[in-house]
């Protein structure tokens, strides 16, 4: 196997980059993460299943997944839009807006949580408009979704932006000169190229949303079966000094989000291949 690739690939640095990547990954991420598996293995299989499928925990997964999915979806659409406007149009204040985008990363999640809860509370700057229509935002799943939208906003934008900037204009120009309409150019030429970064951004925003704790815990209200999120269940297990139970839920979350990431990465690979073949 290796020999075959060696012949084909003249580029150096396979060993070095593999070495650094694996070593760093192992020390910082993989070995520590393996601790959740070791710790939860103290439970028997039966107890493990009982904990991770209990009614309350199950509801918490459902809420975490639903809110993270919706938030990531909204961010995928608006992230694409924002990246497009920032790269393709020139307007005053563009640089400042560009800078703004990273704000959710820079703000400590707790500050974001406190701020959003106050803003969307029933007397808050934004919440009062919604309460006119009797829509409650803070302490409902909508509030959780909004917090996750805030947290995940930069992902898609920052994924799409560099790709869009590097995209070769010649192809679009050629398409235009061949009489393709704007919609056709976007759908047939630009969009396929942007799909992988959009998917990547979506998957990251989704995965981040699943695990988010700091900001959500303020706005969620933590009502059992209604607005309890999965990370909160982990915290509540820990508070009972039940490390094994906490890590059991952690294992389930880890596995699920890892599978999500793999699926999306494969999807991306597939979409790239697909695009390559159709050219």
């Amino acid at each position: 196997m290796k020999k075959k690739y060696k012949k084909k690939n003249v580029l150096p640095g396979f060993g070095l980059s593999l070495g650094i990547t694996m070593l760093y990954m192992s020390l910082i991420v993989l070995i520590p993460l393996s601790m959740v598996f070791i710790e939860s293995s103290q439970l028997g299989w039966h107890d493990f299943i009982k904990i991770v499928t209990s009614d309350r925990v199950f509801h918490a997964y459902k809420i975490s997944f639903a809110t993270a999915f919706v938030a990531a979806l909204v961010n995928a659409v608006f992230g694409l839009l924002i990246a497009w406007v920032l790269v393709r149009y020139r307007f005053p204040g563009k640089r400042i807006i560009d800078g703004f985008i990273d704000l959710p990363f820079a703000l400590p999640t707790a500050v974001a949580g406190i701020t959003l809860t106050t803003l969307y509370g029933k007397d808050g700057w934004l919440g009062q408009f919604f309460s006119l229509f009797h829509i409650k935002i803070a302490f409902t799943p909508i509030g959780i979704t909004i917090a996750l939208m805030f947290i995940g906003l930069p992902f898609v934008v920052r994924m799409v932006q560099p790709v869009l900037e590097n995209m070769e204009k010649e192809v679009e120009e050629a398409a235009a000169s061949l009489g393709a309409s704007k919609q056709q150019i976007f759908l047939k030429v630009i969009f396929p190229e942007l799909l992988p970064p959009v998917l990547a951004g979506f998957s990251l925003a989704f995965a981040r949303g699943l695990g988010e704790y700091g900001s959500v815990v303020f706005i969620a209200g933590n009502m059992p079966m209604k607005t309890e999120i999965a990370p909160f269940m982990i915290m509540s297990k820990l508070e009972q000094f039940d490390y094994a139970g906490a890590t059991a839920i952690a294992v389930v979350m880890l596995v699920i989000s890892f599978v999500c990431l793999i699926v999306i990465n494969l999807l991306q690979k597939w979409s790239r291949k697909h695009e390559f073949q159709s050219e």
Binding site: T117, T118, G121, K122, D123, G124, A138, F139, V217, F218, G221, N222, M223, P224, F232, M235
Partner: peptide
């Protein structure tokens, strides 16, 4: 009758006092 279950005692106090809930 409980509308919000904050994760800590101080959190509950600020919910009541600051956010007026």
């Amino acid at each position: 009758n409980v509308e919000v279950l904050d994760s800590g005692a101080r959190g509950a106090t600020t919910t009541f006092v600051e956010k007026g809930i």
